[in-house]
Amino acid sequence: PAHPYDRLKTTSTDPVSDIDVTRREAYLSSEEFKEKFGMTKEAFYKLPKWKQNKFKMAVQLF
């Protein structure tokens, strides 16, 4: 299930529990994912792991 970005980011005051914290981005809706990352999930997962992590750090999901 998708969760709002505000509850997934590492600085959230009301974090979602029971998620894989190493894959926070996977819980974003497709729309919100595209808004935050500027690309689709499919394109994101084709990137090298280090680049994925760099993007995730930039949007507080790492």
Rank of each mutant, 00 (worst) to 15 (best):
D14T: 06
F55W: 14
R7F: 07
Q60L: 15
P4L: 08
A26M: 14
N53P: 01
T22W: 06
K36G: 01
K51G: 00
T40F: 03
F37Y: 04
Y27A: 04
K56S: 02
Y5G: 04
D20P: 02
D20S: 03
D18W: 04
S17F: 14
P1Q: 13
K36H: 11
E35R: 10
H3R: 05
R24Q: 04
Q52Y: 01
T11K: 02
E31R: 09
D20G: 10
R23M: 12
I19Q: 05
K46P: 00
H3F: 15
D6S: 01
E31Q: 12
F33R: 00
F55M: 15
F55D: 01
E42G: 07
E31Y: 10
P15W: 02
V16S: 03
S17P: 15
P15N: 05
P4M: 06
A43F: 11
P15R: 04
E31P: 06
P48C: 03
D6E: 09
F33H: 00
E25S: 05
A2Q: 15
F62L: 15
A58K: 13
N53I: 14
F37G: 00
A58N: 09
Q60K: 11
Y5I: 07
K56F: 07
L28N: 02
K34P: 04
I19C: 11
A26W: 15
W50F: 06
T22G: 05
S12A: 13
T13R: 11
Y5M: 03
T11I: 04
Q60D: 15
E35F: 10
F33V: 00
F55E: 06
D18M: 07
D14F: 07
R23V: 04
A58C: 15
K36F: 12
D20F: 03
L8C: 14
P4S: 10
F33N: 00
V21R: 08
E42Y: 12
A2I: 15
E32R: 06
K41F: 08
F44W: 05
K9W: 07
D20K: 04
K41D: 02
F55S: 05
D14E: 06
E42S: 11
P4K: 05
D18A: 08
F33W: 01
K51V: 14
L47A: 01
R24Y: 08
E31F: 11
E42C: 12
A58I: 10
T40C: 13
V59I: 12
Y27V: 03
F62Q: 14
T22L: 09
K36D: 01
S17M: 13
S29P: 02
E25V: 09
D18Y: 06
T10F: 07
S30I: 13
L28F: 09
T10Q: 05
V59C: 12
V59D: 04
E32M: 07
P48R: 01
A58V: 08
K9R: 06
M39Y: 02
V21I: 13
F55C: 14
D14W: 11
L47C: 02
Q60P: 08
Y5W: 09
A43D: 14
M57A: 08
A2M: 15
T13C: 15
K9C: 15
T40A: 09
Q52S: 01
F62R: 14
A26P: 03
H3C: 15
V21Q: 11
D18R: 05
P1I: 14
F62V: 14
T10M: 07
S29Q: 01
K46D: 12
A26T: 09
T13S: 11
K46N: 12
K46A: 13
A58T: 10
P1W: 09
P48W: 03
E42I: 11
V16I: 11
S30M: 14
E31M: 08
K49V: 13
W50M: 03
S29I: 01
Q52T: 00
V21F: 11
S12T: 08
F33A: 01
K36N: 02
Y45V: 05
R24V: 06
T11L: 03
T40R: 02
R7D: 08
F55Q: 04
Q60H: 14
S29E: 03
E32I: 09
R24D: 02
P15F: 02
A26R: 07
E42N: 15
W50R: 03
T10P: 02
K9T: 13
P1G: 13
P15G: 07
E25Q: 03
K54D: 10
E32N: 05
M57R: 14
D6W: 08
P48N: 02
P1F: 10
F33E: 01
A2E: 15
K46M: 14
E35S: 11
S12I: 02
F33G: 01
E42D: 12
R23N: 06
R24H: 09
S29K: 03
T10D: 12
R23A: 04
K36V: 15
Y27H: 10
K51L: 15
K9Y: 06
K49H: 09
Q60G: 12
H3E: 06
P4W: 08
V16E: 04
T22Y: 09
P4C: 14
S12G: 04
F62A: 15
R23W: 06
K49F: 10
K41Y: 09
S12D: 08
K46C: 14
D20R: 04
A26F: 12
E42K: 11
F44S: 00
T22P: 03
K56Y: 03
P48A: 06
K36I: 15
P1S: 10
F37Q: 00
L61T: 01
A43S: 13
V16G: 04
